[in-house]
């Protein structure tokens, strides 16, 4: 079988390739509001939901700090630990990529791959918006009806 061309890959595949290619542990694509868009690699030991919320907070705080020193933003954040390190980079104005890796010596490679695959993620994100087919559309009125019902069930005062 022909290997899938990067252009035809899902966002998950792109991210998985990035992890493999950079020899990182895992990668996340998150929104600046702190929601996980996609994840790949070994995320089993991590609470990725919490991580996304925290990193988004961290990133927005750093963006404010950047403004204070006259920069629009810092496009890359690097957190160096003892065993594990985190590379955070902007993909678009509203999304960022988080890469966790173990051997600090591969930092150069991580940085390079983050940039290369970042391009494909940008393409993937805009394709995702474009290719929203009819069947993907959320049936709004049905959605609201179900959701309102569920809310009544979930937020009752004496649950559990």
């Amino acid at each position: 079988m022909e290997p899938t061309a990067l252009e035809d890959m899902t966002m998950h595949q792109v991210l998985a390739n990035l992890v493999e290619d950079s020899r990182a542990m895992m990668a996340l694509l998150i929104t600046k509001e702190g929601t996980v868009i996609e994840e790949a690699g070994d995320t089993s030991m991590l609470n990725t939901t919490a991580m996304a919320a925290l990193i988004a907070g961290m990133f927005s705080a750093t963006r404010e700090v950047a403004r204070m020193v006259g920069e629009k933003q810092f496009s890359i954040l690097l957190q160096q630990g003892e065993q594990r390190h985190i590379h955070i980079s902007l993909v678009t104005d509203s999304t960022m990529m988080v890469i966790v890796f173990e051997d600090y010596k591969i930092i150069g490679r991580v940085r390079l791959k983050a940039r290369q695959y970042g391009e494909h993620l940008i393409a993937g994100l805009s394709r995702q918006q474009r290719n929203r087919s009819e069947k993907d559309e959320v049936p709004v009125s049905q959605f609201k009806e179900y959701a309102l019902n569920l809310i009544d069930q979930i937020f009752t005062a004496n649950e559990k």
Binding site: E33, G34, T35, T49, A50, A53, L54, G57, A61, V138, P139, Q142, F143, Y146, A147, L150, I151, I154
Partner: peptide, 21 residues
């Protein structure tokens, strides 16, 4: 200091997994 946070999974609604952060 910065925020408190927890995610809440409402479940599947009309084919979508719905979350409240």
């Amino acid at each position: 200091l910065f925020f408190d946070f927890f995610p809440l999974d409402l479940g599947n609604i009309a084919g979508y997994r719905v979350r409240f952060n």
